Amino acid sequence: MSIPPGTPPPIRTTRVLDPEQIAMQAGRQMPFLRLPVRAAVFSDRQLRLRQLAASHAMREYLLFIADLAQAQHQVLQDYPDVALPESAALEAASQALKPPMPAFGWPRDPVWRNELRRLLGIFRARVVEGAARDTLDRVMAADDAWLDQQADQLSRRIMFGLDLAAAPLIAAGLQAYWTQLVLQVAQRHGENIFGRTDPGNQCPCCGSAPTASISRIGADEAGFRYLHCALCSTEWHYVRIKCTHCESTKGIHFESLAPEPGVELPATGAREGAVKAECCDSCGHYLKQVVMEKDPEVEPVADDLASVTLDLLVSDAGHQRSGHNLMLLFGDPEIPDDGGGG
């Protein structure tokens, strides 16, 4: 039996009773920061996207982003050195609980535009003729001022004036640049140079909002939740059952697509229970969480893209998304949050 036209699929709501007890467990020793791995970050993403696309209604778009991630991977492997902050500035940011290279505020090295054009040149070979190729050619031919203006819009999360068709392409270049920037700083100064931020829902490296959170498996990280930066792919520990927008531990519950006997749900590609929305009744926001215990191959950006149906259902229930995915922007024009937070 299929869902009648116009009828949204059911969602399962799980109410968590003891958030304080779970939060206390996060005092165990675990790595606070998980930096992206040059050889894996975009490669793993494109592999997961191809896996999710197999039986997905958004198959063509997921494969489009997979090809884009493959180009990001290729560019990142021999990305040229970029300008770094001085040691004193890094230490001062750490002491002030601020990200040292804020997405909006850090002077981007002009090399980001050169590498964006190289990335798009690699990507172009995989894009068939049509609207996508036209947009790609337009971005590749754009002048520096326009690229920087669009990059500023993306960094500040301002939809008004943003070229939505071009946004994922420009974002791909920004992600590659910021990943290189973070890895280069860590190589020179060590990853401990990146401290905690206040508020704790900002990326410790670039201050961006997360795309989603990931509940990890493994000897040192089992059961712990990390937020995954939308821009530089850094992950940082964030207490479970705590709102990623208002930081409250009250009124937290999870919602997920809930299959029922004989009912066909829109395919997400992930195993049941691997993707859920953590909703906060205090502030009305939510962020998706991907769970490796349910599906070890989950990847925050890819699985977030593939579960747009869950976004629509949770939004219909009155909750507003707190993070963002640079590969799929939608919604009304926004006024930037102070400090660029989520």
Rank of each mutant, 00 (worst) to 15 (best):
P204N: 15
Q150N: 00
D148S: 10
P5K: 12
L227T: 04
P300T: 15
C203E: 06
P333Y: 01
V16C: 12
R12C: 07
D332R: 11
L231E: 08
F123R: 06
G340Q: 14
A302Y: 00
E221H: 05
S55W: 05
L116E: 04
R138E: 07
E272A: 13
F42T: 08
A89W: 02
S307V: 01
Q95N: 11
L147E: 13
T234M: 10
Q29D: 08
V314E: 01
N201Y: 00
P204W: 12
I122K: 14
R59Y: 09
F32T: 08
A171E: 15
M292T: 06
E272T: 09
D316N: 02
Q21S: 12
A93N: 04
G218P: 02
D109R: 08
D332G: 04
E221Y: 04
T244P: 01
V37A: 04
V185K: 02
E293S: 12
R271F: 00
Q46I: 02
R321F: 03
H73A: 04
H245I: 02
A270F: 15
A165G: 15
I241S: 14
A167F: 01
P5R: 11
E91H: 13
G323M: 08
L312R: 10
K242I: 03
E297R: 11
D281E: 15
A306G: 14
P102E: 15
H245T: 06
S315N: 07
R59G: 08
W106E: 12
S315H: 09
E191M: 03
L84G: 03
P36W: 13
A88N: 10
W178T: 13
A270I: 11
W146M: 15
G173E: 11
R126S: 15
R216Q: 13
D311Q: 09
L257W: 00
D67K: 13
Q187K: 11
Q72L: 05
D311N: 10
I22E: 14
V75C: 09
G341P: 00
F32H: 10
E221Q: 15
L329T: 00
A71Y: 02
P107W: 07
S215C: 04
A93Y: 04
Q289V: 10
R113L: 14
I158F: 06
F194I: 05
M140R: 09
S208W: 10
V111A: 14
L257T: 00
D44Y: 03
A23S: 15
V239Y: 06
V314L: 07
G318D: 12
I158P: 01
H253Q: 13
T309D: 13
P99V: 08
M327C: 01
F42S: 10
P5A: 08
A167M: 02
L310F: 02
G173D: 14
D163I: 07
V41I: 05
V128E: 12
Q150R: 01
A171R: 06
G173P: 09
V41T: 10
A71N: 02
R45Q: 05
A23H: 14
M140Y: 08
Y79N: 05
G318C: 02
F254E: 03
Y286M: 13
V301M: 14
K276Y: 09
L328H: 15
E191V: 02
M24V: 02
P36Y: 12
P333K: 08
A176E: 07
D78L: 11
V275E: 05
A151E: 09
L120G: 05
Q320D: 01
G273N: 06
C246F: 07
T135S: 15
P110R: 06
R113F: 00
A92T: 10
E91C: 05
N201C: 12
